[in-house]
Write a protein that binds this DNA or RNA. Structure first.
Lengths: 240, 240
DNA sequence: GTTCATTGACTTGTATACAAGTATACGGTA
DNA sequence: TACCGTATACTTGTATACAAGTCAATGAAC
């Protein structure tokens, strides 16, 4: 499964509302990995009937954020090292290609001006959150930064895939709770990517992005050792 | 009583069956792009109630193969040049990365033997369909060939994304109805990819795959001119 | 005490009933 | 004829009723 159903945020069906609410509960870890839940929990929580709740659940199951056990209930998906690495690999492949394309497009002064404006503002914001040592806001700003590139490409299918992939990665990142030093390192990498893109140097941009995303899950072992109960018992596998 | 043959068919819910049936109807063009359909058509066709049909429809809507018009019906998605190119770009990004990884893994003689066996057989099959000028079977064999690489990687998330992306591309390819010459050209490109992979030359493999997938939709303009009614009125856009 | 069939209280899967929005045919009015 | 409100026959969105699988407590048989 991929992609949202509609953009017009005007009239959202109950099903869409349910999807967004439940997904947010999962990604924020308020529903913890491994937790057993039932449709009835959500109908009570959201005050709607089973039909829209089920619709949301099916979508989240396709996204592998929920595991449905027929006739027995559902489990919030455990964080799987394998799933995380699969997802990271996909993000790396797509975003490296994307950033190279954007770098090429940055030869147009119009695109370049747009990028300079938007990415500059984003970097500023990131630095502010580093100074304030606000890890959660930083995480959000980081996501926005990456999304900004994809928006330039205008490939909505790609954007929605990456957004979905981020879901799996962000649960780990939420547990990471970066120190300011680590966040500063990330900002530095972002700055380099921006430099490369504005220089319209697609090779440099691709290389910088690959390095950046290659290190994305470096602290996964630490997170796992601190929250082993949130993780799937591992059988080491790597697609890297 | 003496039991009949026990088929190894896993227990599929009606919803899953509906999804697969309807998807196949769409990709085979038996439901033509732009056709108006209703849930009731599917309940009659599949002899099941609205609930599982709706589940399938929602999934296909997320995949953008069906467009749901609230209170008015549904339309089989028109082929969108933009969607096709977005999808092609994603396949190129992912499969280029994947084939490079596989080429690296082919240094292991075990993996190499597996690849030699499987890909060799697939190429043989492709050549047979070219000789027989059987374009539809060739299309299927082509898909199998590409899937074979992904299976080696073992990244199931990536595999399922590429499978989904193929859905959009294959409607165009189904209309292409290649001549033997064009098919032979594709086989030749496949052979080169195999050569590169078995030589464990990841750069070469990536380059060959990129060239191969870059030409994937070269005859889209011809197809469009022959079946303009299947296409969305274009507003030229490219992510390439 | 151990075993095992039974029962009942759960669950999700599926069918159906009801609510609400949309397009269209119709007929009165000018 | 042209216009326009209205009734109607559709559609999908949502709620609820029913079917069927799962699991654990129970208690009789040994």
């Amino acid at each position: 499964m991929i992609a949202g159903i509609s953009y017009g945020e005007a009239k959202k069906t109950l099903g869409e509302q349910a999807y967004e609410s439940i997904r947010e509960e999962i990604l924020s870890l308020r529903l913890y990995p491994g937790q057993t839940v039932y449709e009835s929990d959500f109908t009570r929580m959201l005050n709607m009937s089973r039909t829209p709740v089920r619709e949301a659940v099916r979508a989240l199951a396709m996204e592998r954020l929920i595991e449905v056990l027929p006739q027995r209930g559902m489990k919030i998906a455990l964080i799987s090292e394998r799933q995380v690495e699969e997802t990271r690999f996909i993000r790396e492949s797509l975003e490296v290609s994307a950033v190279a394309c954007v770098a090429n497009q940055a030869r147009s002064s119009e695109v370049k001006a747009y990028l300079e404006e938007n990415l500059g503002r984003s970097l500023e914001e990131q630095r502010r959150f580093v100074r304030q040592a606000d890890a959660v806001s930083f995480l959000h700003a980081d996501d926005q930064f990456h999304q900004a590139f994809l928006r330039v490409l205008g490939n909505v299918t790609l954007t929605s895939i990456v957004t979905q992939m981020r879901g799996h990665l962000n649960r780990v990142r939420m547990l990471s709770l970066y120190e300011p030093k680590a966040m500063a390192q990330l900002v530095q990498e972002h700055e380099q990517i921006v430099q490369a893109v504005l220089a319209a140097d697609s090779d440099w941009a691709a290389h910088a992005m690959r390095a950046h995303l290659g290190r994305l899950m470096d602290d996964l072992p630490i997170v796992k050792s601190r929250h082993p109960d949130y993780f799937e018992p591992s059988s080491t596998a790597s697609t890297r």
